[in-house]
Nucleic acid binder design. Structure first.
Lengths: 150, 150
DNA sequence: TTGACTTGATTTCATATGAGACGATTTATG
DNA sequence: CATAAATCGTCTCATATGAAATCAAGTCAA
């Protein structure tokens, strides 16, 4: 049972290499961590959002999101407003300077995605997409998450 | 630029789901963390090894390996002996009880690998293997690691 | 041989993480 | 209503991580 042929190990190693690479780029160009970057990406995509929506869309732990949001607010990239209906909740919105950063973040992301994908054929990119979806679902099923109701 | 279509994000999420799943299994059945499990896997595969070899073969940071080795030794699963030629180095070897655990670890690993892989066709498994290799290499190249000399 | 440099493993220190507790709300139930 | 239960975001605490410092041991060069 060679470790380097063990699928979970291989996925983990590759994911870590990719993450480290991207984390370094975000950090040096924008001073953003990966959680911060993800929040920016989600909040920038739609005009304004609840923290809860950000949690769902990033798939990150609520504590992680909470901290990223606080740091982004401290950096002046994000505004937090009390939700009108539910005073426990927050509405998140990019500030003007946050939007400016977002405008730079998107092309860099595309560029890096392209750089990675260029190691593959178009067919392989499509295959990878489907494979990741299937494996992700299977992992969730095995974790005891109920399969999708029909 | 939708986050859920961003390749590095997708890989990271899937890898984390798989890792969490496997970490939970190792933990509940053997009380092993992922770093500990990896060290066991590598040391069990070949009779005896240097810590340096384990670092190379697992791809983990030396501090992480060092700690995993110490914990495994504390649990009585691993023996650490001074290298005869180089007294700074260690020779690692599974104890009798470490071997017993290893014998159980291997079939569980195969079983879990099979459970994951059964979400895919045989062709997809092969594709994934090649794709991971290519992406891993590309990520390393982009990180500034010299491409393989010819 | 001696002193400078390299290398193996561990320790120190600063940072990231998430489970669970918490205070502030909102919602459900009697 | 009123009060129990649930939910939102944060904080506390215990644990994991790796960069850099450290100590021990080995190698190299003069």
């Amino acid at each position: 049972m060679a470790l380097h042929e063990f699928l979970p190990y291989r996925i983990s190693v590759v994911a870590e290499a990719v993450s480290n690479l991207f984390a370094a780029r975000y950090q040096e160009r924008f001073g953003l961590t990966i959680p911060e970057w993800r929040v920016m990406a989600v909040v920038g995509e739609n005009t304004s959002q609840t923290t809860q929506q950000v949690i769902e869309r990033t798939g990150m732990d609520r504590v992680r999101v909470s901290r990223a949001v606080i740091r982004l607010a401290d950096k002046g990239l994000l505004d937090r407003m009390v939700h009108h209906r539910d005073h426990r909740a927050q509405i998140l919105q990019l500030t003007r300077s946050g939007q400016a950063v977002y405008q730079q973040i998107v092309p860099l992301a595309r560029e890096m995605q392209a750089a990675l994908a260029s190691a593959l054929t178009a067919a392989e990119v499509a295959q990878l997409d489907g494979i990741l979806t299937k494996i992700g679902q299977r992992a969730l099923e095995m974790s005891g998450v109920a399969p999708a109701p029909r």
